[in-house]
Write a protein that binds this DNA or RNA. Structure first.
Length: 797
RNA sequence: GCCCGAGUGGCGGAAUGGCAGACGCAGCGGACUCAAAAUCCGCCGGGGGCGACCCCGUACGAGUUCGACUCUCGUCUCGGGCACCA
């Protein structure tokens, strides 16, 4: 190979092969003394392959992992494929190829691309969620939750597309219509489905967000989780109705109880039937029919016009003693609070709109200053004081209690689909719901060809009798399998636990391995998973902790959300047609240049704009370093004494780069390297010690390039067996510094003084400076502010 | 509507409250070349001055401070998330 010309393709092929041969990226998982688990979100292997956004995310995480390795950690950086799920299945249906045939080809392509960009992946521990050796344990996980009482079955509303003949996820419903059939209105159906009791964990999921020892996360991500958990403090209050029944409501405004002039129940509320008078029966039934026909999505976010129907019944306001009418309306949701509200039209916009439409009375009970009025003994209190006082009164009188509500709902994990792990449950006429014995796992997903969903509302698996019928594990009589598969988010809720233990086929995760490597040291991923994936993973870890399976209850000690790559001002997406395919850039410029460019275009946590022109800069930079290394090898040009300015810049660069990389400000680290190289070139210096440090610091960004340079410098071992350089704080500042001289806060001049000069000396130098004097002449210096080695401000007047 | 995040040259962006625009891209001028590419040297926020230099400038308006891109309050714009959550 020519030493003079940098040929990325040759260099990259050489080092990728050598890393594989020598196991460079394979830490000793059983004996690592400084283990560092560097995790990135595993991709869904689409047919299109990895795009620039994926490459950006993976490279940024890889840079950090390589940096930690150079700091002396044993870094485990695994990768895998999130290959089950509705995306893969829908794509398979669209192109008419079975997903089991489609996915391996996609994975093969992803694997090629991931190797191509030079990630520090430990390929011994690759996994795919579709592998029976993996989903066996996903099913095992379900059984542990079932045994712990954290999984249960109940009826719940789902979106149903009559054209697709299947259940849709909420994201697949666009304004009440099917994503794939824009003319077909989505309906609501009620099916019996499996749920996990995540809402039991709401307070713990919330509390840990504030515990930095367990959870050091991007603020945007923890804020998103806080909002999603949706904690509200308030009260549950009972309103008496006829026949000794009560309507229980939840409110965050117990202070407005005296202003509650009517009640509203969700149309599905179980008391509606009993409360409906004969005269109103027909209207109520019609309204309920309309509400239940509407899909789940538009029921929530569709047109906001408030509609409702009077039930014919009245309830007694426990504070005023007045009888108030009970209505039903679909703006009240059955799955939040108690499914019933006390309406306070004077102080709630929705209630006001409803009251105005139907001519219901509006009674203000809070004045403009936030003081409660017309509320008996609570009048005159502030809103906050009244909340407390009303709750105390409710509790004393037995009419209600103070409660905390969360928006978080239990996690529905049933999918009436094919491409997922079958839920490992069996239904027996005599023994009811029976879990599949753990020894019988995995319940293999049968390789059926008619995997498309049909009209029945049950999974395609139900059509296959040879699979569907199974002996009851208890009595051996003919029983039926659960035909739903589990949510993809269950696959990804525990994959980090599997990675260190992929070679064990008799346990999901080895206890020693898990203790050594978990929780994950640093997790980097997209904020689109701020709630679902990251929340579900936390919940699963808590359950596993509580049943004694793992020692931690938070899976990701540190999480950082990376930014988005945009193109032409818009997020990259297929529909916009602005997706950039990385392969051609890598072929033209080399993987290292591509990595450098991605890391240079903006702060990693903010993302940036992908522009073709920008990529030549990092390539020119690498070419310069290549030349510098060549010069260093031939003739270590300023060997002996290095110029002072270079020593200073060298130490500054180490400092800046160390701090920038640790803070994921990769663009700043690269800029620092460029400045150092520019100076070395100006000074015609290729001092060996400086060049060697530069190559090491460059290694996380341009790993193949750095390895090659390291070898050219005469080394036989991998550059990743080196240690990241350290700086000497005393050598970060020049012996002579230029201090800015301000007059009344405006910079007017500079003076050069010895480093760490005292204020009086700097002031003397300033008063000898001609430019400064022009602004000070004839005026009295009333005050001086001195910032050591930086600035002197003279306040004159 | 609510909650985050962000507004700095032609562009991407840099600045523990201390010389705004580092670094890179693009552009302009020059060197080398028969020529082009590559490479190298120089210029590169706006305005004024022959010049040393001066004035203005970090979305907008106030404030705190000796000093504000940075902190506080308000306004506007963009991006993202949540959303009939009582």
């Amino acid at each position: 190979m020519s030493d003079e010309i940098y040929q990325p393709d040759v260099v990259e092929a050489k080092w990728q092969a050598r890393w594989a041969e020598q196991g460079t990226n394979e830490p000793d998982l059983d004996h690592a003394e400084r283990p560092f688990y560097n995790l990135m979100m595993f991709p869904y292997p689409s047919a299109e392959g990895l795009h620039v956004g994926n490459m950006f995310a993976f490279t940024g995480s890889d840079v950090y992992g390589r940096f930690k390795r150079l700091q002396g950690y044993q870094v485990f950086e695994p990768i895998g494929f999130d290959a089950f799920g509705i995306h893969s299945e829908n794509f398979a249906i669209k192109v008419g190829t079975h997903p089991a045939r489609l996915i391996p080809a996609n994975i093969e392509n992803f694997r090629r691309q991931l190797k191509q960009i030079g990630g520090m992946f430990d390929w011994r521990h690759e996994l795919s969620t579709t592998d029976p050796a993996y989903y066996r344990w996903t099913q095992w996980l379900f059984l542990q939750l079932f045994k712990a009482g954290k999984a249960y079955k109940r009826f719940a509303a789902v979106n149903w597309c009559p054209e697709c003949k299947t259940v849709l996820a909420n994201e697949q419903v666009i304004n009440g219509f099917c994503e794939r059939h824009p003319e077909t209105r989505v309906e609501q159906r009620t099916l019996e489905q499996w749920f996990f009791r995540i809402s039991e964990y709401a307070d713990r999921l919330l509390a840990n967000l504030d515990d930095r020892t367990k959870l050091d996360w991007s603020e945007t991500t923890s804020t998103a989780q806080r909002n999603w958990l949706g904690r509200s403090e308030g009260a549950e209050i009972d309103f008496a109705v006829e026949h000794n029944r009560v309507i229980r409501v939840f409110t965050t405004r117990p202070d407005t109880l005296y202003g509650a002039t009517f009640m509203v129940l969700a149309p599905e509320h179980p008391l509606v039937g009993d409360l409906t008078s004969t005269a109103q029966r027909e209207a109520v039934q019609a309204y309920r029919a309309v509400a239940s026909a509407r899909d789940v999505v538009s029921r929530r976010v569709g047109e906001r016009e408030k509609t409702g129907v009077f039930t014919g019944s009245f309830a007694k306001n426990p504070a005023t003693g007045r009888m108030i009418p009970v209505w039903i309306a679909d703006y009240v949701l059955m799955d939040y609070g108690t499914g019933a509200i006390m309406a306070v039209p004077a102080h709630d916009e929705r209630d006001r709109e409803f009251a105005e439409r139907y001519g219901l009375s509006i009674v203000p009970v809070v004045d403009d200053n936030g003081i409660v009025i017309d509320s008996d003994r609570f009048s005159g209190l502030t809103v906050d004081a009244a909340k407390t006082a009303v709750i105390r009164w409710l509790e004393q009188s037995g009419a209600g209690t103070g409660v905390v509500q969360y928006k978080l709902h239990d996690w529905c994990i049933s999918r009436q689909r094919y491409w997922g792990p079958p839920i490992p449950m069996i239904y027996c006429d005599d023994h009811g719901v029976v879990p599949v014995p753990e020894a019988d796992l995995p319940v293999i997903l049968p390789p059926i060809e008619d995997f498309r969903p049909d009209d029945s509302g049950i999974s395609p698996l139900a059509r296959h009798e040879e699979w569907y019928y199974v002996p009851c594990p208890v009595c051996g009589k003919r029983a039926r399998r659960e035909t739903d598969v589990s949510d993809t988010f269950l696959d990804s809720a525990w994959y980090y636990l599997r990675y260190p233990s992929t070679e064990f086929d008799d346990r999901p995760f080895d206890a020693d391995r898990t203790r050594r490597w978990c929780p994950v040291t640093t997790y980097i991923g997209g904020n689109e998973h701020a709630v679902l994936h990251l929340l579900y993973s936390r919940f699963i870890a808590m359950v596993l902790h509580d049943i004694g399976q793992v020692q931690f209850d938070e899976p990701f000690a540190r999480f950082r959300a990376h930014g988005l790559i945009v193109k032409d001002g818009a997020k990259m997406s297929k529909s916009r047609g602005n997706v950039v395919v990385p392969d051609e850039y890598i072929a033209r410029w080399g993987a290292d240049t591509f990595r450098m460019y991605l890391m240079f275009l903006g702060p990693f946590q903010e993302g940036g704009d992908f522009r073709d022109e920008g990529i030549s800069g990092p390539r020119r930079f690498l070419d310069k370093v290549w030349t510098l290394v060549g010069e260093c090898v031939r003739d270590d040009m300023c060997g002996g004494e290095i110029r002072r300015a270079i020593v200073i810049k060298w130490h500054q660069t180490v400092k800046r780069a160390t701090e920038a990389v640790e803070g994921l400000r990769y663009n700043s680290a690269i800029a620092a390297y460029m400045e150092l190289v520019n100076l070395l070139r100006e000074e015609r210096c290729s001092e060996r010690a400086v060049v060697a440090d530069l190559v090491v610091m460059l290694a996380p960004f341009a790993p193949h390039f750095a390895e090659e340079c390291w070898e050219r410098l005469g080394h036989r071992t991998s550059v990743f067996d080196e240690l990241w350089p350290e700086w000497d704080e005393r050598l970060v500042v020049e012996e002579e510094v230029e201090v800015a001289v301000q007059v009344n806060g405006k910079t007017r001049s500079t003076v050069t003084v010895p480093r760490d000069s005292v204020e009086a000396d700097v002031a003397a130098a300033a008063m000898a400076d001609e430019t400064t004097l022009r602004f000070v002449a004839g005026k009295e210096v009333r005050k001086r502010i001195y910032v050591s080695n930086r600035l002197l401000n003279l306040v004159v007047g």
